[in-house]
Simulated assay, not measured.
Amino acid sequence: MTDNTLPSGGDCFQVAGQLIVRCRDIHAQSTKGVTDKVLAHGVVTGQGPVSGIRFSHAWIEGVKNGISVVIDLSNGQRFVGPRALYYAIGQIEPKEVCRYSKEVARAKMLQTEHYGPWEGEVARLGL
């Protein structure tokens, strides 16, 4: 029996964590006009060479022009678009997503001394 999980090995937790607490100037264009931002930790299912493999991932969710959006700037990529599309592409189960306000995310980072994952299925999979 094979295990269909794979650690991400990327920088998503660090990038998303820094983005939620600092909204770094270099990413100002990506976050412009996005309100109600939260840090999201969830499980995505890979495509292409990693098709069907589940791994932990982090991104930012918010609202822009009344539409729920995702901002994912990890691993040198830049996705800013509808949350429904992002969830469909990543085969993300909403019940496996943990969301954190800026204040809660900052407190978790200080308490654990890392960017996550901190709980739920995403923590079980680990990095």
Results as ranks from 00 to 15, higher is better:
M1R: 05
T2Y: 07
T2W: 07
D3A: 05
D3N: 12
D3Y: 02
L6E: 03
L6I: 06
L6W: 02
P7R: 13
G9H: 11
G9T: 10
G9F: 13
G10N: 09
F13V: 09
F13M: 12
V15K: 06
A16H: 08
A16F: 08
G17K: 09
Q18Y: 07
I20H: 12
V21L: 05
R22V: 07
R22S: 05
C23S: 14
R24L: 09
D25L: 15
I26E: 13
I26A: 15
I26G: 08
I26V: 07
A28E: 13
A28V: 11
Q29A: 12
T31M: 12
K32G: 11
G33T: 10
T35W: 02
T35G: 05
T35K: 14
D36R: 03
D36G: 01
K37S: 04
V38N: 10
V38Q: 12
V38F: 14
A40I: 08
G42N: 01
G42H: 00
T45C: 02
Q47W: 09
Q47V: 05
S51V: 09
S51T: 10
I53G: 04
I53M: 12
I53P: 00
F55L: 15
F55C: 08
F55Y: 14
S56N: 06
A58I: 14
E61R: 13
K64V: 09
I67E: 15
I67Y: 08
I67M: 06
I71K: 03
I71L: 04
D72Q: 06
L73T: 01
G76Q: 10
G76T: 13
Q77R: 15
Q77G: 14
Q77V: 10
R78P: 04
F79W: 09
G81M: 02
R83F: 07
R83G: 03
A84M: 01
L85N: 15
Y87H: 09
Y87V: 05
I89N: 09
I89H: 05
G90F: 03
G90N: 05
I92P: 03
I92E: 05
E93G: 10
E93D: 15
P94G: 11
E96H: 13
E96W: 09
V97N: 05
C98L: 11
S101M: 11
E103W: 04
V104H: 05
A107L: 01
A107Q: 11
K108A: 10
K108W: 14
K108Y: 15
M109K: 06
L110K: 08
L110Y: 06
Q111P: 06
E113P: 03
E113G: 15
H114R: 07
Y115K: 02
P117M: 01
W118P: 01
E119Y: 10
E119R: 07
G120C: 00
V122G: 03
R124M: 14
L125C: 06
G126T: 01
